[in-house]
Amino acid sequence: MGKEDDGLESRRTVFVTVGTTRFDSLVRAVDTQEVKEELYKNGYTHLLIQMGRGSYVPAKSTGENGSLVVDYFTFSSSIADYLRSASLVISHAGSGSIFETLRLQKPLIVVVNEDLMDNHQSELAEELAERKHLFCARPQTLYQTIANMDLGLLIPYQPGDATPVAEFINSFLGFPR
């Protein structure tokens, strides 16, 4: 490996995603000095925030004086590459973002948006947290979650085989096998 690769090996990125929603309280929470300092203290070097439709704009930083490099964007046609290169993902509670991150076996903190009506997403996040596949937080508890998280306690998520369910549904609907 050449010298130009050395910076990438030590780069540890926290990727934050709010999906297509407006979730300013999550973006505000990760933009606080205490959260950024805690992430840096835990060995993370970069914070990349996908802020969606939100109106709150986080502060960019070049990472000088012993702090995180912070950048943001609104949308991308795919967040797969961001998820793959992340060392830690902080996500809204959308099932697509959750399962895509878990499938990549990335450490995950799911932050529940309490402003949503009928928030069934919180049930999914809390169940997966209880099973120790991820950490679950609220915007106001994000700092504490990061400060107390022990990534060694997470259990890798093993997706189930959906074939029997699909076969049952196809049979029920009268489709041939």
Results as ranks from 00 to 15, higher is better:
residue 8 L to E: 13
residue 11 R to M: 15
residue 13 T to K: 09
residue 16 V to K: 05
residue 19 G to M: 07
residue 22 R to H: 08
residue 23 F to C: 04
residue 26 L to T: 05
residue 31 D to Q: 03
residue 31 D to S: 12
residue 32 T to C: 08
residue 32 T to M: 08
residue 34 E to S: 12
residue 34 E to T: 10
residue 34 E to M: 09
residue 41 K to F: 11
residue 42 N to F: 05
residue 43 G to K: 01
residue 47 L to M: 09
residue 49 I to C: 06
residue 55 S to T: 12
residue 59 A to L: 07
residue 59 A to D: 06
residue 64 E to H: 11
residue 66 G to L: 04
residue 69 V to L: 12
residue 70 V to E: 00
residue 76 S to P: 02
residue 77 S to Y: 10
residue 80 A to N: 13
residue 82 Y to P: 01
residue 85 S to M: 13
residue 86 A to S: 14
residue 88 L to P: 02
residue 90 I to H: 02
residue 91 S to Y: 03
residue 91 S to F: 03
residue 92 H to K: 09
residue 93 A to P: 06
residue 101 T to N: 08
residue 105 Q to P: 04
residue 120 H to P: 06
residue 121 Q to V: 09
residue 124 L to T: 15
residue 128 L to P: 01
residue 131 R to K: 15
residue 133 H to G: 08
residue 137 A to Q: 04
residue 139 P to Q: 11
residue 140 Q to W: 14
residue 143 Y to C: 08
residue 149 M to Y: 00
residue 154 L to G: 01
residue 155 I to V: 15
residue 159 P to H: 12
residue 160 G to R: 12
residue 161 D to C: 05
residue 161 D to N: 14
residue 162 A to F: 12
residue 163 T to R: 14
residue 164 P to L: 09
residue 166 A to L: 14
residue 172 F to R: 12
residue 175 F to S: 06
residue 176 P to I: 04
